[in-house]
Amino acid sequence: MPDTKRETLRFAPSPNGWLHPGHAYSALFAWDMARATGGRFILRIEDIDVGRCRPEYEQGIYDDLAWLGIEWEKPVRRQSEHFAEYEAALKKLREMGLVYPCFATRKEIQDAIAESGIPPRQWPLDPDGAPVYPGLYKDIPKRQLNELMWEGRSYCWRMDTEKACTMAEELNGGPVTFMEEGVGSRGEHGLIRARPQAYGDVVIARKDVPTSYHLSVTLDDATQGVTLVTRGQDLAPATHIHRVLQVLLGLPEPRWHHHELVRDADGRRLSKTAKDMGLRELRARGVTPEEVRETIGLAERA
């Protein structure tokens, strides 16, 4: 059972690449805060993307964090070992009538946007920069839905965001809010009203994997008793989705602290996709953990 009497923080990387200084900032930020409050620090491996995650990257996470001087509780929770839990939560959302299967391909979505009469450049984008889903397959007849499933068409599960928000507010007895102790997606701080509509009908699960980042991270934080979620500002918009899911699924409410991102000299944030220099490379070059802290601006918290 989670220790509800102590502050609990976590670092939850995906083993789909090597950790870079941006990850070091996030991990050390949570580790330092846990030590300062006498709290718990949890490491979680978010490996639901079974096609991209690799054992060597997971081992690299353990090696890099140990090198940084971070200690974590064991055993480590690996999301790939808990698909049944995510599937149970998905079933609950389905029974509540809040999710629906979407068979739309990327090309179908692009074609629907092109045929909408709205110039593609003016089509709304979600906080992650992707076009907001145009609603294909949202209200198709049940007979057609069954035919598509019988054909074996690939699909994902999308949340009916407007319906979900309405039900969440009914369950909550008023507007759904969350506490931001850092800086939110729009520079907000303090008590913020959850408004996930910017994402449209967001993907909650896929046919081959019964979850998505949004669903799994929400369930994991509750299961592990996380009281303060610390992560980069790029993930701040997702909090609006996660808070609504917490209300719908009857999960406890943590607080959030979104921190600044580590950027290069040109202001670009570091990423695995851009193959920025990893911690393992810095270690091989003789860089010390103290020098990493100094580079990312956390030396004073060591």
Rank of each mutant, 00 (worst) to 15 (best):
K5M: 13
R6W: 14
R6G: 11
L9P: 04
A12D: 01
P13Q: 13
S14L: 12
N16D: 13
L19E: 07
L19I: 07
G22L: 10
A24I: 02
Y25R: 15
L28F: 06
F29R: 05
D32P: 06
M33T: 14
A36L: 05
A36W: 01
L43D: 03
R44Y: 08
I45M: 02
D47H: 03
D47M: 06
G51S: 13
C53L: 07
C53G: 08
R54F: 10
P55C: 11
Y57I: 03
Q59F: 12
G60T: 05
D63I: 06
D64L: 08
D64W: 08
L65G: 02
L65W: 09
W67S: 03
I70Y: 02
I70V: 13
P75M: 05
R77M: 14
R78Y: 14
Q79A: 12
H82D: 07
E87T: 08
L90H: 05
K91A: 15
L93P: 00
G97N: 13
L98H: 04
L98Y: 09
Y100H: 04
C102R: 00
F103M: 00
R106M: 04
E108L: 13
D111A: 14
A112I: 05
I113F: 05
E115C: 12
G117F: 09
I118T: 13
W123F: 04
W123K: 05
P127F: 05
P131S: 02
P134K: 04
G135Y: 05
Y137H: 12
D139E: 14
P141T: 08
Q144I: 09
N146P: 02
L148V: 00
M149Q: 01
W150C: 14
W150M: 15
E151S: 03
R153C: 00
S154G: 11
S154N: 11
Y155F: 15
Y155T: 03
W157N: 00
R158D: 07
T161R: 02
T161A: 08
T161S: 07
E162T: 14
E162G: 13
E162P: 09
C165K: 14
C165R: 13
N172I: 06
G174C: 12
V176D: 10
T177E: 14
T177W: 06
F178W: 05
E180P: 07
E181C: 01
V183C: 10
S185P: 03
G187C: 04
H189D: 03
H189I: 07
L191H: 07
G200V: 03
D201A: 12
R206W: 03
R206L: 02
T211P: 00
T211V: 11
S212F: 06
H214G: 03
H214C: 09
L215M: 14
T218V: 00
D220Y: 04
A222H: 03
Q224N: 10
T227R: 00
T227V: 01
L228P: 03
V229N: 02
Q233V: 15
A236T: 08
A238D: 08
A238Y: 04
T239H: 04
T239E: 01
I241N: 04
I241M: 11
R243K: 15
V247G: 11
V247R: 15
L249V: 08
L251Y: 12
P252G: 08
W256R: 04
H257C: 14
H257E: 12
R263T: 15
R263C: 15
D264V: 12
A265K: 10
R268I: 11
R269M: 07
S271C: 10
K275T: 13
K275I: 12
D276A: 02
G278E: 07
L279E: 00
L282H: 03
R283H: 12
R285A: 11
T295S: 14
A299V: 10
